[in-house]
């Protein structure tokens, strides 16, 4: 496979974020190419979460810059990032449980009725919101019997489907998914992975944060390995064994300048079955 000569959708250069004595990000770089699913993996404390928070406006980096479509950009808060077309799906099924699907899809961005009913009486256009929700859900092939049932009556996978559909509906540039399958069973995880594929097929790049290596290998086009606050490798799943990637993540293997893996810690490498 040859790299497409495209401008990265999103980049970060030399991000630093310190919390007191702790350096969460220590000069981290990041590149997201158009139309790809990029998995971000790393051990606990590797700075995965801080990196994603910086990219989605939840924290402001102390140093370094973020570029969106080649242009430097600073997000004041998550809302700011959302306005710029970066939508995030959070791991703990971030939907309002007692509201119906359409209300959740349009939460914070409701459509009002045209005319005085909307402008004076602030009446919502339930019908239009339902129709548009139905369209978005259908595009992601999320089968639901009714859009008027509260989301708490849905299965975990369907609920995550609502969250994904909402993100896709509003994202112009990037969809970020933070452990979207962590709370789900095997079958439901499969449904969410299918959804991620459909999002990519629509041309929207996806950043997937996951601990689940089989999922990462199943769906990612590229893998960003985060370790000790920086990016230590960018890999293609096809070029490497799962154990190798885990070894890089834990520091048993190192990737040198020519993209060859080098054993950094003999004992650790042997322990996970690499010779």
């Amino acid at each position: 496979m040859t790299e497409p000569p495209a401008v990265p959708v999103m980049q970060a250069r030399g991000l630093v974020k310190r919390y007191g004595h702790v350096t969460a990000l220590d000069g981290a770089d990041f590149d997201l190419m158009p139309g790809e699913v990029l998995a971000v993996i790393g051990d606990n404390g590797a700075g995965k979460t801080s990196l994603i928070k910086a990219l989605t406006g939840a924290v402001q980096p102390d140093e370094g810059e973020i570029l969106l479509g080649g242009e430097p950009i600073r997000f004041r808060d998550p809302l700011d990032a959302r306005r710029r077309g970066i939508e995030t799906v959070y791991q703990d099924l971030a939907v309002a449980a007692s509201l119906d699907i359409a209300s959740n899809m349009f939460l914070g961005r409701e459509i009002r009725r045209p005319g005085p009913l909307g402008t004076i009486f602030r009446m919502l256009d339930h019908k239009r919101m339902r129709e548009e929700s139905a369209r978005h859900m259908a595009e992601l092939k999320i089968g639901l019997r009714s859009l008027t049932q509260p989301v708490e009556s849905l299965s975990g996978g369907q609920r995550q489907g609502v969250a994904v559909a909402r993100a896709v509906a509003w994202a112009q540039h990037v969809v970020v998914m933070d452990e979207p399958t962590a709370a789900l069973g095997v079958k439901e995880s499969g449904q969410v992975l299918d959804m991620i594929r459909r999002v990519r097929d629509r041309g929207l790049p996806v950043i997937l944060i996951s601990h689940n290596m089989p999922h990462v290998f199943e769906i990612a086009d590229r893998i960003h390995v985060q370790r000790l606050g920086r990016r230590v490798a960018q890999l293609k799943p096809g070029d490497h064994e799962m154990a190798e990637v885990v070894a890089i993540m834990t520091g048993a293997l190192r990737v040198d300048a020519s993209d060859e893996t080098v054993v950094a810690d003999q004992g650790a490498a042997r322990a996970i079955g690499l010779s």
Binding site: A96, L99, G108, R122, M123
Partner: peptide, 24 residues
Amino acid sequence: SQTAWGRHVYALGNSPEVARLTGI
């Protein structure tokens, strides 16, 4: 039941975090 304000009140009661993350 018919205004965005009402929907937001329910969302806030469900989870303040969800409400905040959706821009309320």
